[in-house]
Design a protein around this nucleic acid. Structure first.
Length: 636
RNA sequence: GCCGGCGUAGCUCAGCUGGUAGAGCAGCUGAUUCGUAAUCAGCAGGUCAGCGGUUCAAUUCCGCUCGCCGGCUCCA
């Protein structure tokens, strides 16, 4: 007799030892058809696992979050089987589930996406056969024998403990795997191979180059379709594409990875910086600026010469070695040290929009997201130990204000002491506790990444979530216990003794270039009025009205409203179309009526038109909307 | 840096198995002077990323270099 407790607390009894599937069937046949796995005493296992003693279980159906991972893991096995059918000499390595699907790293000759249809056809055959996944536990010796011709599997097995090794078989294919898996391959209703790339065995460049084949899978075709649609949408919003279309920035072979901003791009840039200054002034920051090139001795002192050298651009001037700064902090240390400080000076919040250069590997460059030259909206806060909590809290609140202005949600992650680190246990405790208590006071949930901190101190990373639900790490608050030490920074305390200040580095936008790229994708190029590169398009109905249109433009520009006259000899319809395509939030058409009555006709991006608007009203509303940095479109 | 893919006019893209390039949009010129998402006609625009090789002949085949894209790795 086995008693099974279900999540709702009800208990079901079975005469013989049941499997998860038996339990499901006893509840309802249709439920059984949708079950993929079983949570048995808080461990997820195969649905056909025998339940040998009284237990608490939860049936996992295709609707549960865990199910998708199981599905994709099984799909990885199916793909591997299909590939082995087609490429006899392929050697399998590992095939995990990733965020949007799965991949399998396989040692085989390079293939391209052109080979996908063939593999997908083979996958389809396997799925249609509805082959069951069967688990079997083997001894280490048996596993070694089974995989005697599979070097990668052997290496994996050698690292496993005897007694914990399981194999999963579907049809003629067997893979070393912890599981769990679907009951049978037929659950995979939609699978698609996405891309292929190279990857090294164990991510080690000295080891074999493998083919990493990415795929994704869903329980139904509709979800796959939705996912593909999401990818399409993301592609449409690609900031590189929109950046070219809207004439915001460009890249040139003469400076790979270093963006050139066009006039319209700089309009957005300046709006971002203006806003940043407003918020930082209000939060008690001062703004500073340090040089771009500093000599070697400084970088030796900061530790960058030793630890960061390969990413730094260097040059010899007057027989002295210089480096272009990859970070602003060492310069910031010098600024702190220009004079002795009292505890009464602290906290000092010194911000700097610093242009840094990092020689990133050529293969990682990617639009504005990953560049070699970028601006950090950096700040160094120097404080006493007692001030840690308040200062961190202050940064979090500032971050909150700034991100909400863009309609960006965010979540927080705390990274603690890594294995390789400097400082004493006591220092780390104090620092980490300071961050934790600030986080608790702030009140939003946060994740902890144990051991993920910098070697010089713990940190809080802020991950924003854009309109498509994608997350990006932008802001970060890092406590630094190394630099104040290396630069021997001090302040004089109440006790008239010298003390070491606590220092944090923090950024809100992170990289302004990258943040701008994220905003372009977040808004799909349709910026809120205050950010729009051109805020108003002025379209004269005919050429005779061009001088008047220019007068209107001057009037707006004098009030710092960014305006552009479409002076082309084109039809009004054409000008309107182009203004709409360029996502200009306010489109003013200028005809004889407007000129005579001194009114405006405003078309907004939703296609609505308001005629005969008084200048006063238009200007008041526009200026207010801009000043308040409203997110929603202005309507008339 | 490594693996794979790619590089044709300002942009988007044609150009079959080698016979020295074409379209749409944008630009310019002319006509049209227009009331809310593309007026018409014409013109101009390319050392086919660069260098080298094979060939009677290379945008096309091969090699190298540079750059871009997707990954690996790294990171803001």
């Amino acid at each position: 007799m086995v008693n099974i407790t279900l999540p709702d607390g009800s208990i079901k009894s079975f005469e013989n030892i049941p499997t998860g599937l038996d339990v499901a069937k006893s509840l309802s046949e249709s439920l059984a058809g949708n079950c993929v796995a079983l949570e048995l005493d808080s461990k997820i296992v195969d649905l056909n696992t025998p339940i040998t003693q009284d237990s608490r279980i939860r049936l996992i159906t295709t609707k549960d979050d865990e199910a998708l991972k199981i599905l994709r893991h099984s799909a990885a096995h199916v793909m591997a089987e299909a590939i082995l059918h087609l490429y006899k000499d392929a050697k399998l390595t590992i095939g995990p589930v990733v965020e949007d699907g799965f991949y399998y790293d396989i040692d085989m000759p390079p293939i391209s996406e052109d080979d996908f249809p063939q593999i997908e056809a083979e996958i389809k055959k396997i799925i249609q056969a509805k082959t069951p996944f069967e688990r079997r536990i083997v001894s280490k010796a048996e596993a070694m024998e089974f995989y005697r011709n599979e070097p990668y599997k052997l290496e994996l097995i050698s690292e496993l403990e005897d007694g914990t090794i399981s194999l999963y078989q579907q049809g003629d294919f067997t893979d070393l795997c912890r599981g769990p898996h679907l009951p049978h391959t037929g659950f995979i209703k939609a699978v698609k191979l996405m891309k292929v790339s190279g990857a090294y065995w164990r991510a080690d460049q000295t080891k074999a180059q493998l083919q990493r084949i990415y795929g994704t899978a869903f329980f139904n075709k509709k979800e796959l379709k939705q996912y593909l649609h999401f990818l399409e949408e993301a592609k449409k919003r690609n900031h590189r594409k929109i950046g070219t279309e809207l004439d915001l920035f460009s890249f040139h072979d003469e400076a790979p990875g270093m963006p050139f901003f066009h006039a319209k791009g700089i309009n957005i840039w300046n709006a971002l910086i203006d806003y940043w200054r407003v918020e930082h002034r209000a939060a008690g920051y001062v703004e500073t600026k340090t040089p771009i090139m500093l000599n070697r001795s400084l970088w030796e002192r900061s530790g960058h010469w030793e630890n960061y050298r390969e990413n730094m651009y260097t040059s010899v001037i007057d027989e002295t070695e210089y480096a272009i700064k990859p970070m602003n902090c060492p310069g910031g240390m010098l600024l702190y040290d220009i004079k002795p400080h009292s505890y009464k000076d602290l906290p000092i919040r010194a911000a700097e929009i610093g242009l840094v250069h990092r020689h990133e590997l050529s293969g990682v460059l990617s639009g504005l997201f990953r560049v070699r030259a970028f601006h950090q909206d950096d700040a160094h806060i120097f404080m006493t130990p007692e001030q840690i909590e308040d200062e961190i809290l202050g940064v979090l609140q500032l971050v909150d204000r700034v991100y909400s202005t863009f309609g960006l949600g965010f979540h927080l992650e705390l990274s603690t002491r890594p294995e390789k680190s400097i400082g004493t246990t006591k220092q780390w405790e104090m620092a980490t506790d300071g961050l934790k208590s600030a986080l608790n006071k702030y009140g939003q949930d946060y994740r902890i990444n144990e051991g993920d901190g910098a070697f010089y101190g713990p940190k809080i990373d802020i991950h924003i979530k854009d309109a498509l639900g994608r997350t990006w790490q932008c802001g970060t608050v890092q406590l630094d216990m190394a630099l104040p030490e290396r630069f021997n920074l001090t302040y004089v305390g109440k006790d008239n003794e010298k003390h070491r200040p606590i220092m944090i580095h923090r950024v809100v936008y992170g990289s302004i270039e990258r943040f701008l790229g994220i905003l372009i994708e977040h808004f799909a190029g349709k910026f809120p009025l205050w950010l729009a590169p051109i805020q108003t398009a002025i379209l004269p109905i005919n050429d005779d009205l061009l001088p008047y249109a220019n007068d209107v433009k001057m009037k707006l520009e004098n009030l710092s409203i960014r305006a552009e006259v479409d002076h082309r000899t084109e039809s009004l319809n054409k000008k309107i179309r182009d203004a709409q395509i360029n996502k200009i939030p306010l489109i003013l058409t200028i005809g004889a009526k407007e000129k005579e009555s001194e009114t405006l006709s405003v078309r907004t991006l939703d296609g609505k038109v308001k005629f005969g608007l008084a200048y006063e009203e238009f200007l008041n509303r526009v200026l207010t909307h801009i000043r308040e940095r409203k997110l929603e479109p202005l309507e008339f």
